[in-house]
Design a protein around this nucleic acid. Sequence first.
DNA 1: TTTATATTTGACCGTTCGTTCTAATTGGTT
DNA 2: AACCAATTAGAACGAACGGTCAAATATAAA
Lengths: 193, 193
Amino acid sequence: MGRTKEFDPEAALQEALELFWERGYEATSMSDLIERLGIGRASLYATFGGKHELYVKALRRYIETRRPSPVEILSQPGPALPAVRALVESYVADSVTDVLRRGCMVVNAAAEMMPADDEIARFVEANWAAIETALTSALTRARAQGELPADRDPRAMARFLLVFLQGLRLVSKGSSDPARLHDAAAQALSILD
Amino acid sequence: MGRTKEFDPEAALQEALELFWERGYEATSMSDLIERLGIGRASLYATFGGKHELYVKALRRYIETRRPSPVEILSQPGPALPAVRALVESYVADSVTDVLRRGCMVVNAAAEMMPADDEIARFVEANWAAIETALTSALTRARAQGELPADRDPRAMARFLLVFLQGLRLVSKGSSDPARLHDAAAQALSILD
DNA sequence: TTTATATTTGACCGTTCGTTCTAATTGGTT
DNA sequence: AACCAATTAGAACGAACGGTCAAATATAAA
């Protein structure tokens, strides 16, 4: 009962996500958002709550709409190492095709808002933990399948790869030669040999 | 001729650096800075210029006062690989002792302000390029001295280490177990074997 | 001691911030 | 057709923003 919304909240949230992604949290004003989403001020507040709430929803959408997700890539059946390689290569591909150089929204959120913002901090850490866990189980599986020598430490390798991948997305905000990222990734993957 | 300053500009700039480091650019207001530095508004503007100019000066100070600098660590005479290891370990040490979890100010600046802010972007890229170059020459020296097999690619390895080190400083903003960083670093260093 | 110049203080500038409110509008339900 | 409730547009809110200014103050040079 009552008047129906004139806009699609999902599409509006996507627009908010793009703007936050590009500019970060503090540098994006509610007026910027209203202009970009093309809706009224009151509609924005009624639908998404305040600025911080909107940012959290945007960040959640960023992670949830990523397809395939890192976890999906890593849980492909069959040999595990190719999946790990595919994950690293997908990060490189994301980085070199990112012509606006927005980087990774999670990385941006982490650098800007951690540790002061508890909610964002929990969110980022949960995301990183999920990736580390998925990497650990993929590498454990690889070792069990004989793709990796028995003396390797899957958890340590997963931690290494997590750190490296976040570094990739950060450094890719610079205007550097794509070869820099390719070289770096090739070296990182050499620990799988 | 004229009245003398009542405060030490270097000490004041250090205070500004600490606040920007902790909170980032946008989230730090001039009023915050005035309160922290304990000087008057007009004194701040007269001495350092506007907010952006002050931030650039603070970031420059951050890099220049770091002792020993990455380049210094890497240009130690004698065997080169231990210097590379020492560099990585110094990043780990900085990360695990960073109880306020401010991370690296260059990383924070990169994530928050690149690529929109040209001046900061140039600054960050110059810093990263300097580290990559120093790593490349250290690894080249290592190869020439027989510390590294002849078929290794020093530049690619340097690029890898640069990315990894920036990732370390980013991930260290999370509240994760120090073991995560130690594990990651140990794996990264294993490419030197 | 006078003079010229830099610094300090604190009020003040216009703008923008995130948020709220009022009133008009709309559409599903009764 | 009447009503109710959600949505809308846009004015308005107080606070905070980055930055400037005039007057008072202090110092080194003349």
